[in-house]
Design a protein around this nucleic acid. Sequence first.
DNA 1: AGTGGTCGCTAAACTGATTTAGCAGAGCAT
DNA 2: ATGCTCTGCTAAATCAGTTTAGCGACCACT
Lengths: 341, 341
Amino acid sequence: MGRNRATLADVARKAGLSKTAASMVLNGREGTRLSAEAHQRVFAAAEELGYRPNLAARSLRTRKTATIAFVSDIVATTRFAGDLIRGALDAARERDHVLLITETQGDATFEQYAIEAVLDRQVDGVIYAAMATRRLTVPAAILGGPVVLLNATSPDGLPSVVPDDEGAGRSVATALLELGHRDAIALIGRNRLKEDDPEVSLAARARLHGIRQTLNEAEVSLLAECFCTEWLPEHGYAAMRGLLSKPKRPSAIICMNDRLAFGAYQALGEAGLTVPEDISVISFDDDPIAAWLRPSLATTALPHEQMGRRAVELLLDGGAAEPSLVPMPLRRRRSLAPPAG
Amino acid sequence: MGRNRATLADVARKAGLSKTAASMVLNGREGTRLSAEAHQRVFAAAEELGYRPNLAARSLRTRKTATIAFVSDIVATTRFAGDLIRGALDAARERDHVLLITETQGDATFEQYAIEAVLDRQVDGVIYAAMATRRLTVPAAILGGPVVLLNATSPDGLPSVVPDDEGAGRSVATALLELGHRDAIALIGRNRLKEDDPEVSLAARARLHGIRQTLNEAEVSLLAECFCTEWLPEHGYAAMRGLLSKPKRPSAIICMNDRLAFGAYQALGEAGLTVPEDISVISFDDDPIAAWLRPSLATTALPHEQMGRRAVELLLDGGAAEPSLVPMPLRRRRSLAPPAG
DNA sequence: AGTGGTCGCTAAACTGATTTAGCAGAGCAT
DNA sequence: ATGCTCTGCTAAATCAGTTTAGCGACCACT
């Protein structure tokens, strides 16, 4: 890879100057008294030789690699990982940095390995990302340098970037109230584990809190709340069937994520009910399926790309110590209507 | 990041030996005549100081960085990217390598930038990945070192890893024939652009070819073939409605991907038809939604994780020059049944 | 004439590893 | 006593940059 690259010494020789001079010119150092002509010659030589500095050599001296580690628990399994990475990639490129990506798979041994691997490569900082918004404790080894938590918070008070799930909860509830839904709003996706253990999820509790707060302020209470062991379509399906078997039919359903909503749609379809004429549905995440459903599903978007970007900005440009809350925009789609009759 | 790390010189000093000796012991060099005691002392010193070599320094001398570039056109937008990356990550870790990830977004300027960025960092090789299986030409700049194409082929005859879409086409057709479907099989997802331009897609043509070949051998021809401008649910929906409006109803549908099948399901549901009793459905990709649909959708899986893994193996361990075809396993699910009546 | 300052530039040290070339001492044969 | 080999180790060069310290020439001023 990259054999026969021209070195700084080659450039200097061609320009008839010392390495020192060439280095200073190419780095645009202020206050050196090199002549305009020397500048010309160095630039010309570098151009002609297609010179590009060897960053390994440079970083040996400067201890800067222009490389950031992106350490995450799981990159696959969720389609969102790509957006998180893409946002980080974009922001890194704008700052002439590059991303070293590793995955811990939630395994302590892998994590240890991943961290050593990136520290050995002298990365300038670490973005420690979680795929589900949660609280975690970062390994001590990376605390020697800049760290930003992405989609996670930690007890150490490290800079972190998380979505505003509570705000999203408020948006969702407000959207329903504005349409006139009041005493027939049901919730699908309560989950003790997610709500009570911040190391599993911070989103569940925050979303619930946002919803409750808004409804309380309007003096509205939920018609029903369904617990689900997981947030997958099958659980949404089962929950929806449960709701439909009760005497009072809800006028609107809030699902804790889009996959639950997908399951709910399936149950509604089987029951011969139409969205949104019979029942409105709204949820969280803006999974791609939300737009594919018929009718399209109103939801609040997890701004993964923005979050990835913000993490890099925080890491390289510095910034707020308190968690950076990224708003979750409401996507108004066809699944919303005023209550029937 | 990584301040105050012990250096090799520290280890040597503590062991009372030269850097040379320490280096040789730690690298397990054969044929050096260092005493067993010297070995002990070096290991002990390294252990005690928590010594880890500075890879930037090492690579300056050895021209090896134990780092691979993963350059892809688009990492987001498709949920599959994660699996491709994960497979590569796993295989890289097993070989003590790490992945530098960049994205070109299909833009020539970004591509140029990405390639320079990774070459400047002296990567040991490049995995050039495409998110949709297609043919492409790799930029000359990376041809100076090892390159493997992932989910793509090139006219240069570079080593490449692609899914066996033609085999998948055969599996799909065979599965339907075995169930007894013959003269009422319809196809959704013909697409001139994808079929005719290998720089857009290799999958469409290969899948179609596999299907046709198997049906021809059984002397069966397709009842209908629907063209779709894109392979999204809405197009599958429209195509399915089209098929249902014709006099002869198909007994089975082959969709060119799962998203089309999702759309087909929606149209079938609206028409009051049930899968698989009225119509069987089978498709390609094994998108997560395939398992979420009711009934679950039979499909052939794109083995992204395996492909990512294979690419790294090819790059680091060497191997076949001709394209490495990774089989696409058939996932038999509930959407298949013998034709009705 | 001597002193000091600025200008334009360079030699050499330094970063932390690997690798080449070779040295001192022991043992052995001649 | 000399030459030879083998053992166990080290000094120094090297990789490709950055950075520190300083050199010679020229000018101005006292």
